[in-house]
Amino acid sequence: MAETKTKPTPVNVADFIDAVENPVRRDDAKTVCAMLERITGEPPKMWGPSIIGFGSYHYKYDSGHEGDMCRLGFSPRKAELVLYILTDSDDEAEKLARLGKHKTGKSCLYIKTLSDVDMAVLEELSRDRLKHMDQAYPSN
Protein backbone atom coordinates (compact mmCIF):
# COMPACT_ATOMS: atom_id res chain seq x y z
CA MET A 1 0.00 0.00 0.00
CA ALA A 2 1.34 3.48 -0.87
CA GLU A 3 2.57 5.68 1.92
CA THR A 4 0.47 8.75 2.70
CA LYS A 5 2.23 11.92 1.58
CA THR A 6 0.10 14.27 3.66
CA LYS A 7 1.62 14.10 7.12
CA PRO A 8 3.03 16.64 9.57
CA THR A 9 6.29 18.30 8.56
CA PRO A 10 8.73 20.53 10.46
CA VAL A 11 8.17 23.46 8.06
CA ASN A 12 7.38 26.69 9.91
CA VAL A 13 3.79 27.78 9.18
CA ALA A 14 4.54 31.52 9.44
CA ASP A 15 7.43 31.14 6.99
CA PHE A 16 5.19 29.20 4.58
CA ILE A 17 2.48 31.87 4.71
CA ASP A 18 5.02 34.69 4.36
CA ALA A 19 6.26 33.03 1.15
CA VAL A 20 2.80 33.18 -0.50
CA GLU A 21 3.34 35.46 -3.51
CA ASN A 22 -0.08 37.08 -3.80
CA PRO A 23 -0.38 39.67 -1.00
CA VAL A 24 -4.17 39.30 -0.75
CA ARG A 25 -3.90 35.51 -0.53
CA ARG A 26 -1.09 35.88 2.04
CA ASP A 27 -3.20 38.21 4.22
CA ASP A 28 -6.25 35.95 3.82
CA ALA A 29 -4.13 32.96 4.86
CA LYS A 30 -3.05 34.78 8.02
CA THR A 31 -6.70 35.56 8.81
CA VAL A 32 -7.89 31.98 8.22
CA CYS A 33 -4.95 30.59 10.19
CA ALA A 34 -5.79 32.78 13.20
CA MET A 35 -9.49 31.89 12.97
CA LEU A 36 -8.90 28.13 12.81
CA GLU A 37 -6.35 28.28 15.63
CA ARG A 38 -8.88 30.15 17.79
CA ILE A 39 -11.70 27.72 16.93
CA THR A 40 -9.70 24.53 17.46
CA GLY A 41 -7.41 25.66 20.27
CA GLU A 42 -4.65 23.88 18.34
CA PRO A 43 -1.48 25.43 16.93
CA PRO A 44 -1.11 25.32 13.15
CA LYS A 45 1.17 22.68 11.63
CA MET A 46 2.21 22.02 8.07
CA TRP A 47 0.79 18.80 6.63
CA GLY A 48 2.66 17.84 3.50
CA PRO A 49 4.05 20.65 1.38
CA SER A 50 1.02 22.94 1.27
CA ILE A 51 -1.71 22.22 3.86
CA ILE A 52 -1.88 24.10 7.15
CA GLY A 53 -3.68 21.86 9.61
CA PHE A 54 -5.06 22.02 13.12
CA GLY A 55 -5.23 19.00 15.39
CA SER A 56 -5.15 15.45 14.07
CA TYR A 57 -7.16 12.26 13.93
CA HIS A 58 -6.58 8.67 12.89
CA TYR A 59 -8.79 7.13 10.21
CA LYS A 60 -9.15 3.59 8.91
CA TYR A 61 -11.17 2.67 5.82
CA ASP A 62 -12.93 -0.65 5.19
CA SER A 63 -10.24 -1.30 2.55
CA GLY A 64 -7.66 -1.42 5.33
CA HIS A 65 -6.04 1.88 4.35
CA GLU A 66 -5.40 4.00 7.41
CA GLY A 67 -3.52 7.10 8.39
CA ASP A 68 -3.55 10.40 10.19
CA MET A 69 -4.82 13.76 8.97
CA CYS A 70 -5.55 17.20 10.38
CA ARG A 71 -9.00 17.77 11.87
CA LEU A 72 -9.39 21.09 10.03
CA GLY A 73 -7.09 22.60 7.46
CA PHE A 74 -6.57 24.95 4.57
CA SER A 75 -4.14 25.72 1.79
CA PRO A 76 -3.38 29.12 0.26
CA ARG A 77 -3.07 27.91 -3.32
CA LYS A 78 -2.10 30.13 -6.23
CA ALA A 79 -5.64 30.50 -7.63
CA GLU A 80 -7.66 30.42 -4.39
CA LEU A 81 -7.85 29.43 -0.76
CA VAL A 82 -8.88 25.82 -0.23
CA LEU A 83 -10.46 25.07 3.14
CA TYR A 84 -10.95 21.48 4.23
CA ILE A 85 -14.03 22.14 6.34
CA LEU A 86 -17.11 20.73 4.59
CA THR A 87 -19.07 17.85 6.11
CA ASP A 88 -21.94 17.34 3.63
CA SER A 89 -24.42 17.71 6.50
CA ASP A 90 -28.08 18.53 5.86
CA ASP A 91 -27.87 22.14 7.05
CA GLU A 92 -24.59 22.90 5.25
CA ALA A 93 -26.33 23.91 1.99
CA GLU A 94 -28.23 26.68 3.78
CA LYS A 95 -25.02 28.03 5.27
CA LEU A 96 -23.20 27.84 1.95
CA ALA A 97 -26.05 29.82 0.38
CA ARG A 98 -25.36 32.59 2.93
CA LEU A 99 -21.56 32.41 2.61
CA GLY A 100 -21.02 34.42 -0.55
CA LYS A 101 -18.95 33.67 -3.64
CA HIS A 102 -17.35 30.21 -3.46
CA LYS A 103 -17.07 26.77 -5.07
CA THR A 104 -17.16 23.38 -3.40
CA GLY A 105 -15.60 19.96 -3.85
CA LYS A 106 -16.05 16.76 -1.84
CA SER A 107 -14.94 18.21 1.51
CA CYS A 108 -13.31 21.35 0.11
CA LEU A 109 -14.44 24.94 0.04
CA TYR A 110 -12.77 27.13 -2.58
CA ILE A 111 -12.65 30.89 -2.03
CA LYS A 112 -10.87 33.43 -4.26
CA THR A 113 -10.66 36.04 -1.51
CA LEU A 114 -12.12 36.45 1.97
CA SER A 115 -13.69 39.75 0.89
CA ASP A 116 -16.08 37.61 -1.22
CA VAL A 117 -17.54 35.80 1.79
CA ASP A 118 -19.27 36.41 5.11
CA MET A 119 -16.64 35.64 7.76
CA ALA A 120 -19.29 34.81 10.38
CA VAL A 121 -20.69 32.09 8.12
CA LEU A 122 -17.17 30.81 7.35
CA GLU A 123 -16.56 30.53 11.08
CA GLU A 124 -19.91 28.77 11.51
CA LEU A 125 -18.95 26.20 8.84
CA SER A 126 -15.56 25.69 10.50
CA ARG A 127 -17.14 25.12 13.90
CA ASP A 128 -19.58 22.65 12.34
CA ARG A 129 -16.66 20.70 10.85
CA LEU A 130 -14.88 20.60 14.21
CA LYS A 131 -18.06 19.37 15.92
CA HIS A 132 -18.45 16.73 13.20
CA MET A 133 -14.81 15.63 13.66
CA ASP A 134 -15.20 15.50 17.45
CA GLN A 135 -18.22 13.20 17.06
CA ALA A 136 -16.76 10.99 14.32
CA TYR A 137 -13.21 10.85 15.70
CA PRO A 138 -13.20 11.67 19.42
CA SER A 139 -9.86 12.88 20.80
CA ASN A 140 -8.07 10.55 23.17
Rank of each mutant, 00 (worst) to 15 (best):
M1K: 04
M1T: 01
M1L: 04
A2M: 14
K5E: 09
T6P: 00
T6M: 05
T6G: 00
P8D: 03
P8L: 06
T9M: 04
P10W: 07
V11S: 13
V13N: 08
V13H: 07
A14W: 01
A14T: 11
F16Y: 15
F16C: 11
I17A: 11
D18R: 10
V20E: 02
V20W: 13
E21C: 09
P23K: 12
V24P: 09
R25P: 05
R25Y: 07
D27I: 02
K30T: 14
T31G: 07
T31L: 12
V32Q: 10
V32M: 10
C33Y: 09
A34C: 08
M35K: 13
M35A: 11
L36C: 10
L36F: 13
E37Q: 14
R38S: 14
R38I: 06
G41C: 02
E42H: 13
E42W: 04
P43V: 15
P43F: 06
P44V: 03
K45I: 03
K45F: 09
M46P: 01
W47I: 01
S50R: 03
I51N: 04
I51Q: 03
G53Q: 04
F54C: 04
G55N: 01
S56Q: 02
Y57W: 03
H58W: 00
Y59E: 00
Y61C: 00
D62H: 09
S63P: 00
S63H: 02
S63F: 01
D68V: 12
D68S: 12
D68R: 13
M69H: 06
C70M: 12
C70G: 10
R71Q: 02
R71S: 00
F74E: 00
S75C: 11
R77K: 15
R77L: 07
A79M: 08
V82I: 15
L83M: 12
Y84C: 05
I85R: 04
I85T: 11
L86N: 03
D88A: 15
D88P: 05
E92D: 01
E94P: 06
K95V: 02
A97T: 05
A97I: 03
A97N: 10
R98P: 06
L99D: 01
K101S: 11
T104A: 05
K106Y: 07
C108L: 02
I111H: 04
I111Y: 05
S115H: 14
S115Q: 15
D116L: 13
V117M: 06
M119G: 07
M119A: 10
A120R: 10
V121G: 11
V121W: 07
L122E: 08
L125Q: 05
S126L: 14
R127F: 09
R127W: 08
D128I: 07
D128G: 10
R129K: 15
H132E: 11
M133R: 11
M133N: 09
P138E: 01
S139A: 14
N140W: 09
